[in-house]
Amino acid sequence: EVTIKANLIFANGSTQTAEFKGTFEKATSEAYAYADTLKKDNGEYTVDVADKGYTLNIKFAG
């Protein structure tokens, strides 16, 4: 089991951190699915992958 950390960075400057656990593939998939649910209210997003994929910096356009 691994932990994927998602740093969520919103257009208004606020930030939030979420963690997803499971296999690497499952946790990564859940992180992207979570970002997709936030897209409606926060706009499109870009992802900067860090720490060999264990950290995702997800920035929303607003």
Rank of each mutant, 00 (worst) to 15 (best):
T46A: 12
K59E: 04
T46F: 13
D51R: 04
K5T: 07
A61Q: 15
Y34S: 02
N42S: 12
I58W: 01
D48F: 12
Y54F: 15
L38E: 03
S14K: 08
V47M: 10
A27I: 03
D41H: 11
A6H: 00
E25A: 08
E30F: 08
K26Q: 06
A27M: 03
T3N: 06
E30V: 08
T3K: 07
F24G: 04
V49S: 15
F24W: 14
A11E: 14
T17S: 05
Y32H: 13
T3R: 12
V2R: 08
G62Q: 11
T55L: 15
T55I: 15
V47E: 01
K26A: 15
K5H: 11
F20Q: 00
T46E: 09
L38F: 15
A27H: 00
Y45A: 02
D36W: 04
G13D: 07
K59S: 08
F10M: 13
E44K: 12
A6C: 03
K26P: 02
T46W: 06
K26C: 04
E30Y: 03
T55A: 05
D41M: 10
K39R: 13
I9P: 00
E25N: 05
E19T: 11
G62R: 07
L56S: 00
A27E: 01
A35C: 04
G53N: 05
A61H: 12
A61Y: 07
A50E: 15
F20T: 01
S14E: 12
E25M: 13
A18W: 09
E44V: 12
A6F: 03
A35N: 01
A31W: 02
A6D: 01
K40H: 10
A50P: 05
N12L: 05
K5E: 07
E1D: 12
K52M: 15
D48R: 09
E19S: 13
K26Y: 10
E30M: 05
I58V: 08
G53S: 05
G62T: 15
L38R: 07
I4T: 01
Y34E: 02
E44H: 14
K39F: 13
D36V: 14
A33T: 09
A33L: 10
T46D: 15
A6M: 12
G62H: 07
L8R: 00
G53E: 04
T37N: 14
N57A: 09
S29L: 15
E1A: 11
N7Y: 10
I4K: 00
A33N: 13
E19F: 14
N57F: 05
D36T: 10
K21S: 11
T23M: 14
T28L: 15
S29M: 15
A31Q: 01
G62Y: 08
E1T: 15
N57H: 13
A50M: 08
Y32S: 03
I58L: 12
A61D: 08
A27Y: 00
K21D: 06
I4M: 06
V47R: 02
Q16I: 15
E25G: 10
F20A: 01
A31K: 00
A35M: 13
G43H: 03
T28A: 06
T55P: 01
S14P: 07
I58G: 00
T28V: 14
D51I: 02
T17P: 10
L56K: 01
T55W: 06
D48M: 09
T15R: 08
T15W: 14
